[in-house]
Write a protein that binds this DNA or RNA. Structure first.
Lengths: 153, 153
DNA sequence: TATTGTTATACTCTATAACTATA
DNA sequence: TATAGTTATAGAGTATAACAATA
């Protein structure tokens, strides 16, 4: 009942609350680019997924949803779907120049509020970098089944 | 590009991925009780919010959504809306005996998979407890504006 | 026969606004 | 006039199934 004990479910609650806060800050920091389009651009730029499905796995986005998302990004001229010679069913997603520009602009704002949030969470700059490394590495570990399909990336 | 550097947005990605994993495990661990109904029961039991709005703030659930959620919980006989004498517009939510039973059963399963997840994230039992404390405390700090309204709890 | 991506459809979740009853 | 809760409606997000092209 007191403020400093924790009950089963508090971990999930804390993670969900932090994510809500993250989304709020993203929306006010990055104009003209939604959080998911941003993540798509970021993943394409930094991980170069083999095809749309691998991209979707990494972001936890269903392939049907990703189709609509990519339709908009293509319409906005930020990405292109290019054929893959070795498998003509699949498409590789690449950034256009405009997409790279948009991503670069957004990333500087995201980096700023992420540092701010990590500071709010009690981490200094060095700890913050370490925490992100740790989370990212942990999430890639086989224990987390939400990411099992990510191996294909 | 390498596996161990991180880009702007990785923090948000890691948190979102952990939350997805959490939701997956919740669904397979707790049958007959959704994650949000569980959180409602848990919040009512452990924080005893003053009214529905305070309850909604804590969970990041809009009051209109909470109405539907509570309708179902009432229909299932897990909670009751009781009048508040000092403000007859508002209602206080209380658990029924069945609600307390359901919560207790669910909590043992949640505690188990939370411990398992925290271990997957690289924490031992002591670290895990500390991490949950830390996250919960951090989220209550004024820096995070998603929780500003929580003061009313 | 299985897989990649697309399309169509429906369903869930969530938000907006209007309404009531109180304050 | 403002607030707690409810209701109605619409919108966004997401999932399911069926389809085409290819493996």
């Amino acid at each position: 009942m007191s403020e400093d004990t924790h009950a089963p479910g508090d971990f999930g609650w804390a993670v969900a609350t932090i994510l809500r806060e993250y989304q709020l800050r993203f929306e006010e920091a990055v104009d003209c680019l939604g959080i998911r389009p941003f993540q798509v651009l970021s993943t394409v730029a930094h991980r170069d997924p083999a095809n749309q499905q691998a991209l979707g796995f990494h972001l936890g986005i269903d392939r049907t949803v990703l189709t609509y998302l990519l339709d908009r990004l293509v319409a906005d001229g930020l990405v292109e779907r290019v054929p893959i010679p070795t498998d003509r069913r699949a498409r590789r997603i690449i950034l256009t120049d405009a997409g790279r520009d948009a991503l670069t602009r957004a990333e500087s704002r995201v980096a700023a509020f992420e540092a701010d949030m990590l500071a709010s969470l009690g981490a200094d700059a060095a700890q913050a970098a370490a925490l992100v490394q740790e989370l990212a590495a942990a999430v890639r570990r086989p224990g987390l089944r939400a990411c099992e399909a990510m191996e294909e990336l």
